[in-house]
Amino acid sequence: MATNQSLKLQNTFRPNGRVFEVERSAAEHSAVVRMLLEDFDEPDLLVTIIPISIDTSDDTLAKVFEWATHHKNMPKPALDDDGDRDEVVTIQLASWDDEFFSDIDSETLYGILIATNYLDIKPLYDMAVQVVVNMVRGKSTKQIREILGITSDFTAEEEAAIRKETAWAYDGEEVPNETS
C-alpha cells in the first residue's frame, strides 16, 4: 500500500470550506479517517473529497494538518486500541510541538481541541489539553479569567462569599492574590 498518496478533506460545516490535500500517512493520525479508509473502497476515497463537519475555521484545520504532516511518521495506535481516554497523564511537549503551540492564539487552540476531538487525533488532542492546563495551572482566579476570556457574572455579594470560601486557608494573613 503506497503511503505517499494524498487524501482530500473538506470541512462542510460552513459553505465553501477549503479543500485540504493531506498525505495519507499524515491523515491517518485521525482514527476517523483511518476507519473510513478501512470501511470504504480506498480508490474511491483517494479521488473523492472526504467531507468532515467541524465547527472550526479552515485556518485551524490547516494547523491540525500541519501538525499531522510534521508527525506523519509517528506510530499510530491501533484502531481497536481504545486506551484509557479518561486516564490523566501529564505530557511534556517536545521542542517542535512547544513552538507549534506558542505560535497559535487561544481561538485556534480551542479550535484544535474541537477538531482533534472530532477527528480523534489523540496525540494532538492530549497536547492541546496539556497546553490549556498549563495556561491555567498556578494562576489566580483573576489571571484565569484574563487568560481564558471569562467574564465574572457573580454579584458583588456572591464574589465576596466566594472570596471567603478560600480566604480561610491563610491563618489571619493577607490573601496572597485575589481569591486564590
Binding site: V136, R137, G138, K139, S140, T141, I144, R145, L148, I150, T151, S152, D153, F154, I162, E165, T166, T179, S180
Partner: peptide, 12 residues
C-alpha cells in the same frame, strides 16, 4: 489549587 480557582471564575 487551579481547580478551585477556575471554579471561582464564573457561574458557568
Amino acid at each position: 489549587i487551579s481547580l478551585i480557582a477556575l471554579s471561582q471564575t464564573s457561574r458557568v
